[in-house]
Design a protein around this nucleic acid. Structure first.
Lengths: 331, 331
DNA sequence: CTGAAAGCGCTAACAA
DNA sequence: TTGTTAGCGCTTTCAG
């Protein structure tokens, strides 16, 4: 059928082992022999079979990436970070969407392990005992990206959501001298819980009495943002500011406010989270927390390569810096 | 090391062949035997090695997806379509970014072929002779998604960009009775050429004398849109409408217009392309051409499964329907 | 319905 | 520096 290493060996009058050596850049080959082999490889159009190599060497140079939803801006930027570093280290990525669904996640881990990936980058909502169990059924390294593991058993790359939310809230409190509203996308996303904690801590810190009525949960989409404002504005006293846990929701919030004839930031200030590209694509431009998504992916993948090479790793839990970028949706 | 089919066979007192049969759902196994095998698989925690299977069966149940940039909304939605259908047919996806770079594309095709993918979904700018050559070095099926192949040698799934652009332009001509400006992202993206052709055809069709000054090319980003308007508005006569070849650019255009104190659509109408999620996330909401990105991916993947199964395919070149959705950025 | 045995294409000792 | 020889873990005839 197709050309194998054996064909090349025969044509070049050497052994398979020698061909294998030149293909793998092993230095123990006489230059003239190498040249000869290289020429017949070229002539025959030989292409090494990575599957056979994987079986023999027990390394596939592919890693699995489990992601909630590639079509979300947040994760697609993150994935790009993973992919770039993977390419840099000669790995390929098997990508799968989990929709944050635990059964799917578990099943995907299994499938990737069957495919003998050399490592896994996992992004998801919550890490449960079952996830840990599943990972333990094999000893391939796993790194979490933008995903929290309460048990702290797994290496991970994150930002400090709690502090980021604290700072954003604090910022809003300082300009408005009052409790900002909080619009969030649901607790099944782990980081939202942390953001809420930061929000609450900032309020307590400023001795503000907490009004739970202006804490709104809705779908983490643009429309969820619009609806969130509608719910919020039914409340007697209108808040002077709103902290929203994703940019996309925040843009919905801004438009929801504007649709009611109110002004951002004069009537209500709006604060987003993530600094996705859309944060600039709205008027007024969105003040937000910069979460370096690309970097989270890149660092997670880099970390994974270290584990795969069995290198020393001094820090299993990486916290990347975040910062606040002020634009026109706040004063 | 880890459990193999041989271990299971020994423990269950059957042959490897029998274990292989039950794992692969071969019906020629006595129910009691099947049960026994299944139990010891469970007990031992056996996980089939897909790499070994791939080597023996010459099928990997993974397909390659080559994509310009996963972090772009357009392609990430498309990829989601590919992935969902792939999952449905039990395939996994190896995903790689090409940045529309020909060398990278060629190299990626090679890598995927080495990994013995069962098929490839290719998204890119231009298909050259070299691409075709590269694909021909193996007989795995290839399907193009949202990518044009002038030679028409490869199966593909697209929409009719030329007609879509024609219709959009026509629409603008009817309301403004004049030549709309054209802001585009560069000719290296094949579809932009087709859109331009449609634009020109519409102008000719309406016997409008073509003013090339209001045809602007810039980077296909939000900022490229803003800059595009700036260039455009330096021209003596202000156009009454602008047709923009991507939504993201179109939003830049809208903001660029608004930043100059002009009104959309009263002073200038804006027409986008793709109907990505951001089309709704702007005020005024964007009139645009609906290109079913998810469906393009899904249909491309479905088509690929047919080729991989050697099924009859009656239509190699699929053109999916597009439509125009009028929102508030046009009158 | 089940088993034996020959590969799939390559790597990795081990010899030479 | 090069070749020989076992596997890697599974599928797939072919017999029975």
């Amino acid at each position: 059928m197709s050309i194998t290493i054996y064909d090349v060996a025969r044509e070049a009058n050497v052994s398979m082992a020698t061909v294998s050596r030149v293909v793998n850049g092993n230095p123990n080959v006489k230059p003239t022999t190498r040249k000869k082999v290289l020429e017949t490889i070229e002539r025959l159009g030989y292409r090494p079979n990575a599957v056979a190599r994987g079986l023999a060497s027990k390394k596939t140079t592919t890693v699995g990436a489990i992601i909630p939803d590639i079509s979300s801006t947040f994760f697609s930027e993150l994935t790009r970070g993973i992919e770039d570093i993977a390419t840099m280290y000669k790995y390929n990525i098997i990508l799968s969407n989990s929709d944050q669904n635990k059964e799917k996640e578990l099943h995907l881990i299994d499938t990737m392990l069957e495919k003998q990936v050399d490592g896994i980058v996992f992004m998801g909502g919550e890490i449960t005992e079952e996830h840990i169990e599943q990972f333990k059924t094999s000893r391939v390294p796993v790194v979490l990206a933008a995903t929290h593991d309460e048990t702290n058993e797994l290496p991970s790359v994150n930002i400090d959501y709690e502090s980021a939310a604290y700072e954003a809230t604090k910022h809003l409190i300082e300009t408005t001298k009052s409790q900002p509203a909080f619009i969030t996308g649901g607790e099944h996303i782990q980081s939202n819980g942390l953001k809420y904690e930061g929000y609450i801590r900032a309020l307590k810190d400023s001795s503000i009495e907490i009004n739970e009525q202006i804490v709104i949960e809705n779908e983490a989409t643009y429309h969820g943002g619009i609806e969130g404002v509608e719910q919020l504005l039914k409340v007697a006293e209108r808040p002077k500011a709103i902290f929203v846990t994703t940019d996309e929701m925040a843009i919905g919030v801004i438009h929801g406010i504007q649709d009611r004839g109110l002004h951002v930031p004069n009537d209500i200030e709006v604060f987003g989270f993530n600094n996705t590209r859309v944060a600039l694509m709205v008027r007024p431009t969105l003040t937000t927390v910069v979460q370096p998504m690309y970097d989270i992916g890149a660092v997670a993948m880099r970390l994974l390569t270290k584990y795969m090479n069995k290198e020393e790793v001094d820090e299993n839990t990486v916290i990347l810096p975040h910062r606040i970028i002020e634009r026109d949706s706040t004063k």
